[in-house]
Design a protein around this nucleic acid. Sequence first.
DNA 1: GTACCTGCAAACTTTTTGCTACCGA
DNA 2: TCGGTAGCAAAAAGTTTGCAGGTAC
Lengths: 138, 138
Amino acid sequence: MSNETIIDRCEARGLRMTGQRRVIAQVMEDARDHPDVEEIYARASAIDAAISLATVYRTVKLFEEVNILDRLEFGDGRARYEDADRDHHDHLFDLKTGEVIEFCDPEIEVLQEKIARRLGYELRGHKMELFGVRLKDG
Amino acid sequence: MSNETIIDRCEARGLRMTGQRRVIAQVMEDARDHPDVEEIYARASAIDAAISLATVYRTVKLFEEVNILDRLEFGDGRARYEDADRDHHDHLFDLKTGEVIEFCDPEIEVLQEKIARRLGYELRGHKMELFGVRLKDG
DNA sequence: GTACCTGCAAACTTTTTGCTACCGA
DNA sequence: TCGGTAGCAAAAAGTTTGCAGGTAC
């Protein structure tokens, strides 16, 4: 939750900054939602029409590997991405509508630490998330 | 939960019980883990070598639609399934090893109800799950 | 008997990769 | 300079589907 931009963090990690990477970094910097790769590609294409889908895939994977982006899986078969450098929060995904709700609850934060510890995991530096699944019927 | 078998529940829902469906139901009845479709197919093939992968896909989808199986997504690109008629529990998935840990915590159960209500969801009959994601580095 | 189910192969979707040319540091 | 990077197209991996024949009820 620093105020470095994604591009700053790329440079801090010594990534070679090509034009395409700058565009994708900017797209994710501006994103207030959780775009999937196709959507990131669409937004990047609006800035530089020459960017290829393969480059978007390679770049978000790279950014994820160096913890600049988080990959989210909501069970609809597509990976979604968001800026990793944000306050910790959880996601609730409505399987009916596809809507994603972000929220944060201090009790959950405490509980997550507790559970991780009980299970022998050291949560420090890792992330755990409450993943809400709303099934189709009652 | 109840002690009906999966086959019992299929019949209770009026599903036409073919040999293939019986085999797949039995495989899931016996499963203590969270097999993906390929694994269910392998286990079913050991009982009836003529079963096709397409039938396994169609059958687990059908069983999921009538709430006989739950579909789980752990972010590794494959759907996994488990018997829906079990005590509620959560899953912790280790991204490093692929290991799945099941656990249940009463505080989480209470918290899940609370969060759902705060967000305007009525959890009754639906499911929410604490999904653990362990990232690669500290 | 008939509507539903199955196997097969082909199609589809999402993601990865081999190769050649290119570009950033 | 020169090793990493981009574009393209082909391949992979997981899943769905059209069709013709078969089966449960």
